[in-house]
Every structure is written in C-alpha cells, then in structure tokens.
Design a protein around this nucleic acid. Sequence first.
DNA 1: TTGGGCTTGCAACTCAGTTGCATACACATT
DNA 2: AATGTGTATGCAACTGAGTTGCAAGCCCAA
Lengths: 145, 145
Amino acid sequence: MCERCNYAEMLEGHGVDPTPLRQAVLRSIGEESRPLAAVEIIAAVRDQMSINKVTLYRILDLLVDRGLVKRLSAGDRAFRYGMGETRHHPEHPHFVCSQCGVMECLEPDLLPAGIRKFQIKGKRIIKHVDVRFEGICESCLKARM
Amino acid sequence: MCERCNYAEMLEGHGVDPTPLRQAVLRSIGEESRPLAAVEIIAAVRDQMSINKVTLYRILDLLVDRGLVKRLSAGDRAFRYGMGETRHHPEHPHFVCSQCGVMECLEPDLLPAGIRKFQIKGKRIIKHVDVRFEGICESCLKARM
DNA sequence: TTGGGCTTGCAACTCAGTTGCATACACATT
DNA sequence: AATGTGTATGCAACTGAGTTGCAAGCCCAA
C-alpha cells in the first residue's frame, strides 16, 4: 500500500521483534493494494527467502493480535490478510468477486455514513461492523466479452 | 422461524422433490431464530432420522442454489445456513459473538438505509452487500458477571 | 425388464489452518 | 568457555469443514 512504510519500525512500535521473516510478511501485505490469502503471502515471501507455513501462520496471528494486520473473511474458506487501520489506511469496506474470489478494497466513503455509530443494541455489545460487497470484478467482466 | 411454514410446499414451489431428508433439513433451519452451522443442522436432523454428512452438504448446496437457504459467513471457518429471503423473512444484518461464535439475526432496520442501492461502482458489478456486526452476545455478557 | 435418472451412503480426499515437539539462535549468568 | 533461559523457526502429524468418486437403492418410463 505505501512504499514509504518502514516495516521494521512498525513492528518495533508494536512491541514485536522485527525479524527478517516478520518484516517480509508485513511488507508482502503492505505492498499490495488488496488483502491477500495466506497462500499468496507465502508465495510472495518465498520470492525473497524461505519460510515454513506454520511460521507464516504464527506471524500472522501475532500481527493480527498486535493490530498491525486485519484478518478478513471473504465468504469462502480462506481468510484474507490486509493492513490494519492507521492514518494512511482508514477503515473501508471490501469487495469480493464471486467468480474468481479476489478481494479488493473499496473507498472508505462507501461505508454507509453513520455505520460506525452502532451502540449497545439490546443486550449485546457491538464492537465492529464488517461490510462486504459481492459481485463481479473488473477483470472477470472483461474476460466475459 | 415460522411454525406455520409448509416445508414440503416450499420445496416443491422451488422445483425440488420434497424428500424426507430435505424437509427435515429445511425445517431444522426454518425453526431456528438464528443461522446454524452444518454440525448443528446435522444434530437437529438426527434427532428425527438418520443422515450422512455428505447428503447434508448436498442438500444444503441444493437449497442454497434454489434460494431457499442463504449461506452466511460468520468470520470463522464454518458457514452458517439461514432461511432465504421471503415476505416473512426480509433481508437483515447479522451479529456474531466473537467469544462463543454464535450468529444471530438483527432487525432489518439496522441495515443502513440505502445500502441496497449500490450500483456499478467503477468497473465492477456489485450484486449483494453483506453487513455483519461483531461483539459480545447477551449470554456471554451474563456469564462474565 | 431393462434402462436412465435421481437420492443417499461410505470411504477417501482436499484445503486452510493448528498442535506438539525439536532445533536454532540470541543474549545473560556464572 | 559453559550454562541457562527465552524467543523464533521448522517439520510431521493432526483437525475440522467441506468435497469427490463411486456404488447401491429406488422410481418411473419405454
């Protein structure tokens, strides 16, 4: 997402030892404009260094736990991992192509106004809201013609 | 959801042969106020008759395909299955408890006004929008005290 | 009664992620 | 240098949810 991010600094700022693998995982996620599945992250990291899938999942757990990364559900059985919220990356809804399964980020203003102002509703506590649009992505549309 | 539903009729109305297992699956889903995971449906059906899990998944695929049932993602790795939209069951958002994982249906008016009026945005076609609230459910809240 | 099509069952498989345990490396203490 | 403690990583095996391949049972038509 942002070329100028210093991933080592981000990790340290969240109390995480910036090992090469953790930097590579966070960079792979941060340099993409869309949330990635674990299999895509592992492929991206392996372009540069070797990593075991268990290590990847443990790094992802850690980053999600620290809020650096967000675990997103795409409506299929594999989670997607995208950058957590910061000044440069405000909350936004996502789009999932029901044909090819790709997940894309949408503009934050597509989040219906006021949707963040949910309160205790009845006797539940509501903490987050997740808005996911589904349809056909641009490249699948092109491929149909 | 509704005691007065005639599940055999609903199946026939959607061009599906109303076998005992299909009726039992649809009834299990229809009589609950919240969407169920496959493991809960299989348990409910097995209170009355024997069913194999492959058969259950095939029936669920069929019912989802015919629009009688909606496949919902709860943010974990197991889908939930709830009744499809009808006059009695209008579209509504869902709530997922991040502690116990239960999924509940929320009031339709919690769907932000106008969220259904999404259009072709950029070069994508958007067909559906899925709104999922997350937090702590009533019974988990009680258990904390 | 033969054949085709639908429904169900069983075993084995897939896929994404997890667990248990071992190894490796870093840094501190003796 | 030797030892210990903690964290990071790897490998093999496992889990849970769902899928595939194939066979058996059943019904109705020709």
